[in-house]
Design a protein around this nucleic acid. Structure first.
Length: 562
DNA sequence: GACAGACGCGCC
DNA sequence: AAAGGGCGCGTCTGTC
């Protein structure tokens, strides 16, 4: 895998759209300054297509320009997304977090002018959106290509000043590669069988009763709940449920599933069934299908780096929360296969690599089941205990079994636990933490300190400070893992393209990817995936004994992958 | 009628 | 067994 940005000498060109389908472009030198004349060409697509020697295209924002290129049949190998980079650099520059990330804002900062705010995040729309809110405009009279060049050159210099410039360069390249993947996945879409989905809904929910009422099964379950209480109760109103249980002498603080499960009452079983089916009905039912699945594809709009930790989000369609039962509807086209891969215990392995804990690196350098290996060494063979302890360390669990098991973890793997403890401590003191690559957490806000609205350091030991500590503790692991996963994705994309495959990435969910490919390519894709984890691990964390295996399944139906 | 916040629950 | 991290999104509820 040739990695994004590892080479300084790659040939870069800046490009911007001119608004009439054309483009302005010019070559760049190593410092990010123009290395030749600025050209103006009538066709963006032709300008890019005719320059295969360009190794990386520097542009303002991938979402818009690359969508147009893809529509014209032009794929690029690498890019540098100036607005994505601005976001990461601003976050890294102490005290700057939270500032606007648009090209216009970056340019204004460069010239010490008033900084325009970013366009408000667009709310999820009922239709997948092909319309961008458009770039934040530059001051009138400012040439946007010049602004692009100036901001980019500034970013090259700022990157060199970060704590680990080589890691930051890799992060910027990986985030940009993620932008390319996101645009390509949107274009490809997830193969979705609406007929299978409908059949599932009919089976689980019963047929829809005409007149807009709930499906038959929900009506029946609601009646069953009412019968159990002896009065009419609407199961989707938490207040009514709590009152009804109260009359039966059962005090509930909420109607959460785990709380209800503890209660012995004939209403509990139908109520839990109702809640789960109601959820399916409202979130992934018939209307979702009509809104989001067209021509056999589900096209969510991916937002790389949409969360503070670097995980992606999606805009509309709830693509990262597809319920397991619904995955039956995700089927390869005839003659094609889905290659489904998910990373095995990604976060503990990443913790081993970033903390350099010798013992944990050794455990993470063995087979496929890290928790079993951990248990064999430290928890008397009890895999469940080992897992609870590890997740407790990563999430900051403060009570229950996790605490006692964590003591054992601390004894055996002191450097690993110290790593997350120190991140938690930094958070409790109101300091910032970073991932291995330099992605930086958002600063503490007033809501993290006492509720008097004053902005001041966190009060050590308060519940809010401890919550902030759990956030920063988790951030360093979840964030570094997200960055590693991004390298896997970028590496896989490049490997598949170099192999000349028709395979397409169609889904990415934190530690899991789906490739849709002709049956004949599936074995090759699986091999590329198997290599991608360790390659990304070496690239990201340098030489460590830690292995990053992925479990891969070649299936026709996503529901069969687990 | 629009909007914000809380809640609940789907996923990792 | 208990309830810790990150999200999106639908519903309900209170407010303007």
């Amino acid at each position: 895998m040739s990695v994004p940005a590892a080479r300084l000498s790659d040939m870069r060109w800046a490009v911007a759209e001119t608004g009439d389908g054309g483009a302005r472009l010019c070559p760049l030198d190593q410092d990010g300054r123009p290395a030749g004349e600025v050209l103006c060409e009538p066709s963006l697509a032709e300008a890019v297509r005719s320059r295969p020697e360009v190794e990386r295209w520097v542009w303002r924002s991938t979402g818009e320009i690359y969508r147009r290129l893809l529509a014209a049949g032009v794929r690029v190998e690498r890019c540098y997304d100036v607005e994505a980079a601005e976001s990461l650099l601003i976050g890294h520059e102490e005290g700057q977090s939270g500032q606007a990330r648009s090209l216009a804002a970056a340019w204004a900062r460069l010239h010490r002018l008033p900084v325009p705010p970013d366009a408000p995040a667009r709310a999820a729309e009922t239709q997948p959106s092909l319309f961008e809110s458009g770039p934040v405009p530059l001051p009138s009279g400012t040439d946007d290509f010049t602004a692009l060049l100036e901001v980019y050159a500034g970013q090259v210099a700022r990157t060199a000043k970060t704590e680990h410039p080589e890691r930051m360069r890799m992060l910027l390249a990986a985030e940009s590669a993620g932008m390319l993947v996101a645009a390509e996945m949107y274009r490809a879409g997830i193969p979705w069988r609406a007929d299978v989905h409908r059949e599932l809904l009919d089976t689980m929910l019963g047929e829809r009763i005409s007149g807009g009422t709930e499906p038959r099964r929900l009506v029946e379950l609601a009646e069953e709940v009412s019968r159990a209480f002896g009065v009419r109760v609407r199961p989707d109103l938490p207040n009514e449920i709590i009152k009804a249980f109260g009359r039966a002498g059962i005090l509930l603080s909420s109607t959460r599933k785990w709380e209800l499960q503890e209660v012995e009452h004939p209403a509990v079983a139908p109520l839990l069934a109702y809640k789960s089916l109601y959820r399916l009905y409202t979130a992934h039912g018939w209307s979702w299908l009509e809104q989001w699945v067209h021509d056999g594809r589900f096209r969510p709009e991916y937002v790389p780096g949409g969360t503070v930790t670097g995980r992606w989000t999606t805009n509309g369609g709830g693509a990262l929360q597809i319920p397991k039962v619904i995955r039956q509807a995700i089927r390869a086209d005839p003659g094609w296969r889905l290659v489904v891969a998910d990373a095995d215990q990604m976060e503990p392995r990443v913790l081993a690599a970033i903390s350099r804990d010798p013992g944990l690196m050794e455990v993470a350098g063995r087979g496929e089941d890290l928790y079993a290996d951990l248990a064999a060494r430290a928890f008397g063979g009890d895999r469940a205990q080992a897992k609870i302890a590890m997740l407790g360390a990563i999430y900051g669990q403060t009570s229950g079994d996790a605490l006692t098991h964590m003591a054992e973890l601390r004894r055996r793997y002191p450097a690993a636990v110290a790593y997350v403890d120190s991140a938690a401590h930094a958070g409790e003191e109101g300091r910032l933490v970073r991932t291995w690559f330099g992605r930086t957490c958002t600063p503490a806000t007033s809501s993290d300190s006492a509720d008097d609205g004053e902005s001041r350091p966190l009060d050590y030991g308060t519940p809010r400070a401890r919550a902030r500590g759990r956030f920063t503790r988790n951030f360093v692991v979840q964030g570094s893992a997200a960055d590693w996963a991004l390298l896997v994705l970028a590496g896989l994309r490049q490997a598949m393209s170099q192999a000349g495959l028709r395979a397409e990435l169609v889904f990415f969910q934190h530690d899991e990817v789906i490739v849709h490919c002709p049956e004949a390519e599936a074995a090759t894709v699986a091999e590329l995936i198997a290599a991608a984890g360790d390659t990304a691990g070496r690239l990201a964390f340098g030489p460590t004994p830690v292995r990053f295996p992925l479990t891969t399944a070649i299936v026709e139906c996503y529901g069969d992958a687990k």
